[in-house]
């Protein structure tokens, strides 16, 4: 699939944003974070800002962004629509929770409940996002059990890192973000490896033979495509990345997204002071960059069944 920048930015930024809101809700309610105002302002700013930036970026993908509002109507069947609805809905508890935290200095009890609600809404939104992909039977590399946990874990991981960064930037000593990150990075990495292992090892049940129904005659090969330059289908669905490049990019994603952030976070936890500040300041953006690469690969490595009509033997 064509890795559209707008969609990559959208899922990465809003993923991190929802991750932040999720951790704020969970860690606020449990008392791990005090309702510190400056920290709250920055953390909510990053969270809601990430979400909003992501959503805005996603409209750049649309042929008619001015009609984007129409996308809220079909929540009964469409995960994209549901995602739209959920993302908007999340603003309500998240916003209220933020108001409580920042302006009233409250993040527990009724406010904590709003926090938990916001965390749940964030999860729901990410589930919807993941399901946009997870539900596409046409793309076996998306339509599998690994996708949802991946989305959730990556959001949690980046959210936690950014939360920690907010703490560092506001000069706060608290480290639950770092601890959450340290827990979620290995999980995310494990899930990502699992995903990659899965897509490398399994093929779609659809083949050139089933796509054409000609399998009984023997192996099916494309002899001539209907057109000699790429059309929408090929540009959108036929995007192909060479194995070599994919491997390289996976390494980058792993190092930038998991290995270094994990190390840096561990260092930050172990060594307070300037080192911590530097480590955290690097970890979050680095991880996000890693996730951007990961997300790019998520699209680039996805194979659509339409390619079976264009010479692919499996999708």
């Amino acid at each position: 699939m064509h890795p559209a920048l707008s969609v990559i930015l959208f899922t990465t930024a809003s993923g991190a944003g929802y991750g932040i809101i999720f951790w704020l809700g969970v860690l606020g309610e449990t008392g791990a974070y005090p309702p510190d105002r400056t920290f709250g302002l920055l953390a909510f700013g990053l969270g809601l800002g990430g979400i909003t930036a992501g959503l805005l970026a996603s409209t750049a993908h649309l042929g008619h962004p001015e009609r984007a509002w129409r996308a809220f109507s079909q929540w009964r069947t469409s995960w994209l629509s549901r995602e739209g609805v959920a993302s908007l809905a999340t603003y309500v508890p998240a916003g209220l929770f933020g108001i409580g935290w920042v302006f009233l200095g409250e993040n527990r009890e009724i406010w904590g409940f709003l926090g938990v609600l916001a965390a749940a809404a964030s999860v729901v939104t990410i589930v919807c996002t993941a399901y946009i992909y997870r539900s596409l039977k046409t793309i076996q590399r998306w339509c599998n059990a690994w996708v949802l946990p991946n989305y959730l874990a990556l959001a949690a991981m980046t959210g936690a890192l950014w939360l920690d960064l907010a703490a560092v930037l506001t000069g706060e000593p608290f480290t639950p973000g770092a601890e959450a990150a340290l827990c979620s990075i290995p999980v995310a990495a494990f899930l990502k490896f699992g995903y990659w292992r899965f897509i490398d090892a399994t093929h779609s049940t659809s083949t050139a033979e089933s796509a054409t129904g000609l399998g009984s005659l023997g192996k099916v090969r494309l002899f001539e495509a209907p057109h000699t330059s790429d059309n929408y289908l090929m540009k959108e669905m036929g995007f192909h990345i060479a194995r070599k490049h994919a491997t390289k990019l996976r390494c980058i994603a792993v190092i930038a997204g998991f290995v270094l952030p994990c190390l840096l976070t561990a260092i930050a936890l172990a060594m307070p002071g300037a080192i911590r500040v530097i480590a955290v300041l690097i970890a979050a953006p680095l991880a996000t960059a890693g996730v951007l690469v990961e997300r790019w690969l998520f699209f680039a490595e996805a194979r659509h069944t339409v390619t079976l009509y264009y010479g692919a033997s499996t999708a």
Partner: peptide, 13 residues
């Protein structure tokens, strides 16, 4: 709105 999702969902291009 031109979100292209339907084209992703069509196996047949």
């Amino acid at each position: 709105i031109g979100c292209k999702l339907c084209s992703w969902a069509c196996p047949y291009g």
